[in-house]
């Protein structure tokens, strides 16, 4: 399986993602944002970080960079595109997934482990993961997911919510919502479910001795599900 991680000026989780993808068997290539064409890939990842210093709105400048037209075409032709953290912010700015990510409700940068509940397993990202709840890491200032009421209805009708913030039992309640996201949303799909944007960082939970293993579950599963 081949993957590509896009590096923007200000990306800082691109190499972590490279390590994670390789650890679980992907042949990964790093792609600079000024490239025009993607290498042949089964999965494209927009990594976390602070692309363009979060100027204007987080992800907005990166969403207009040269490589993104190829990423958008790849996604529109059914290719798997995953945006983590800042990558999620870039995805919403391209319009590949609906909504926006606002400043965290309590104006704090949040850096901690959280539990998320997998809401939909009818997709290549979460299919065959036995667990319903994963412990993952978040680190963001703008992760407060927001969308219009019409968009929310559409997202819910199409089962586009991928993961919600919850407790370790999978209970989705306001008190487990770290950033004010509508309906505790931590990650969403596009309609076709080949594009996933999420705030948590699975690439930070792949070393049992350092962090945890729930990220490993995610990547092991991912490489088996990509056709």
């Amino acid at each position: 399986m081949k993957s590509a991680v896009i590096t923007f000026p200000g990306s800082n989780c691109d190499r972590d993602m490279d390590v994670a993808l390789k650890k679980f068997g992907f042949k990964n290539k790093m792609v600079w944002h000024q490239e025009v064409e993607l290498p042949k890939s089964d999965l494209v990842v927009l990594p976390g970080g602070f692309s363009y210093g979060d100027y204007l709105r987080c992800g907005s400048m990166a969403s207009k960079s040269k490589i993104m037209q190829s990423v958008i075409n790849f996604a529109n032709s059914g290719g798997m595109v995953m945006g983590i953290c800042n990558g999620f912010q870039i995805l919403v700015e391209t319009g590949l997934v609906p909504g926006v990510l606002l400043r965290n409700k309590y104006l704090e940068f949040i850096c901690k482990n959280v539990f998320v509940k997998i809401r939909d397993k009818n997709n290549a990202y979460f299919k065959n993961i036995k667990n319903n709840v994963l412990e993952l890491h978040i680190a963001h200032n703008e992760g407060n997911y927001f969308c219009t009421n019409d968009q929310l209805k559409e997202i819910e009708d199409n089962a586009q919510i991928a993961i919600n913030y919850c407790d370790n039992q999978g209970k989705i309640e306001k008190s487990f919502n770290p950033n004010g996201s509508i309906k505790n949303i931590a990650g969403i799909f596009n309609k076709e479910k080949n594009v996933l944007g999420m705030m948590p960082h699975p690439e930070r939970m792949i070393e049992p001795s350092l962090s945890g293993e729930d990220g490993s579950l995610f990547f092991k599963n991912l490489i088996n599900n990509i056709k």
């Binding site: 709105r57 907005s60 207009k64 927001f146 219009t148």
Partner: peptide
């Protein structure tokens, strides 16, 4: 196209 995000 860039300066505003019309969702918000």
């Amino acid at each position: 196209k860039l300066l505003a995000n019309l969702v918000i």
